[in-house]
Design a protein around this nucleic acid. Structure first.
Length: 151
DNA sequence: CCCTGATTCGC
DNA sequence: GCGAATCAGG
């Protein structure tokens, strides 16, 4: 059964234009149309770029997130620097590392024991610990530069 | 964990 | 073309 009838496509366009979420639209359309189906169709129709971007100060047609329970906004988010950057063995190899896993290399690339960190990615390609090493800013002083160069 | 849209890729 | 699975970000 062809799901995307003209009528449903029309309604999809309309609902999407109103800023409804994909899940909401899928429920609206019913007929076994899933959230993914909506997203896929939206993409194929080229609607992705047409999302109304609420200008600053506008009413945003986005009632979605408000229905959920909001976490108590009291807690401080303290970055714990940890001490435990495993110096030797990672949990992944170049063949097994997955998408959101830290790619920090550990060990000698020429040895079979060579591995990748594999911890959950925090920033870019690395976990928080390794990102702190990888994404340091450019050296601000000559001393920093010299240290970086190992001189 | 929850959510969101975005993307991939076998069908 | 379709959409489940997955990705990426909040």
């Amino acid at each position: 059964m062809t799901v995307w009838t003209e009528d449903r496509i029309k309604r999809l366009r309309s609902l999407w234009r109103e800023g409804r979420t994909a899940e909401s639209i899928s429920r609206d359309l019913g007929a076994g149309i899933s959230r993914s189906a909506v997203l896929g169709k939206v993409r194929r129709l080229g609607l992705s770029a047409l999302r109304p971007e609420p200008a600053a100060g506008e009413n945003r047609p986005r009632p979605a997130a408000s229905e959920r329970t909001r976490p108590p906004a009291g807690a401080r988010s303290e970055v714990r620097h940890a001490s435990t950057v495993s110096p030797t063995v990672g949990r992944r190899t170049v063949l097994t590392v997955r998408r959101r896993e830290c790619r920090w290399p550990l060990g000698d690339p020429l040895k079979p024991s060579f591995s990748l960190c594999g911890c959950p990615v925090s920033r870019g390609a690395f976990c928080s610990d390794h990102a702190a090493i990888a994404y340091r800013g450019a050296p601000q002083t000559f001393e920093q530069l010299a240290r970086l160069a190992g001189v």
